[in-house]
Design a protein around this nucleic acid. Structure first.
Lengths: 171, 171
DNA sequence: TCTATGTAGTTAGCCACCTAACTATTGTGC
DNA sequence: GCACAATAGTTAGGTGGCTAACTACATAGA
């Protein structure tokens, strides 16, 4: 079963490699490759949906951080850390969000190196327009799975994540 | 269990939304978000490893297509279709790969609009250096799962993929 | 106190993706 | 046979990610 002609060369390559490398398990690699392919499809799907609202994935991630605590301000460096991107990237995303009037920058009263960023009313309204649609689309991805299936899936995914060495020295 | 303070605001947002939108299932969204978070970690992990060999993910994908049938040539448009990226992006990636001497471009003998691209010996050798390490790293991601676990995981992932509407009109 | 070190944000420049528009060439229909 | 449409690849310009270097400011130590 699963006789995909297009992928047969990969399987042949894998099987040849696995003869030389005993630790390499062909079915593990194939599972991981499927995982990655579907993840890519999911990201594209979500990207396309957010694009209908004129929001990129990167901007959405920042807006979500703001929205969760829309009454308070965030330092750019704090946003970078929460979103898992660099401060330089945050600068660029904030430029775009500020240009659209979704967030605003104010200088910090005490420490003049810092900038306080805050979501505007327009930003809140934009998120209120996007979120129902966005989460509904995400929710529907799982509609082929039962509650029990999802519990199992979470367990498998967490075990995969546990194998990824977490970079401690992240400067 | 799973009492992550940082994510509580998301859960609160989700629960509020789910009251207004009956079709929205909170646990489905949370499962999908975990799936995406781990997928991102996996991609970063693989990226970091390929970077040690001076190869980006995009270039690796093209090289893998070449390597699977290293005796034949490919049209750039064919590479784009197989890799799931645009022709414009292929142009850029081929520029880099050609600059490094890993692939070569030749004009098509019959149709002068077309370009035949082919992997060089140096390209083959580079892939032979990268592949064992690369696939071993991918294989290890699954070492917390049994054969049976992986079968189940594949089934779940395929059911998620089945919910993604495939864009027919991809011009 | 003043120098050195550290910190926050930005800038510059690279990469890989995109869309839209352009060039060159081939194929088609009157 | 020639104008027009279709096709292949590239170019131009935008975005979001990165690292490295820079500016401005704050802080700690001799």
């Amino acid at each position: 079963m699963e006789f995909d002609l297009r992928d047969l060369p990969t399987r042949a390559t894998l099987q040849e490699l696995s003869r030389k490398i005993p630790e390499l398990d062909v079915s593990s690699v194939e599972t991981a490759l499927l995982f990655m392919r579907v993840a890519t499809n999911v990201f594209h799907h979500i990207h396309d949906n957010l694009a209908r609202f004129g929001i990129s994935q990167g901007k959405f991630n920042l807006l979500m951080i703001f929205y969760k605590e829309s009454d308070r301000s965030f330092l750019p460096s704090e946003l970078a850390e929460k979103a898992g991107i660099t401060r330089a990237t945050v600068t660029g995303l904030l430029d775009g969000l500020e240009r659209e009037g979704l967030v605003e920058r104010k200088s910090h009263p005490k420490d003049r190196r810092m900038i306080m960023t805050r979501m505007t009313q327009k930003g809140i309204e934009r998120m209120q327009a996007v979120l129902p649609d966005h989460f509904l689309l995400i929710s529907r991805l799982m509609q082929g799975l039962t509650e029990e299936d999802r519990r199992m899936l979470i367990s498998y995914i967490e075990r995969i994540d546990a194998e990824i060495p977490k970079a401690e020295g992240q400067q």
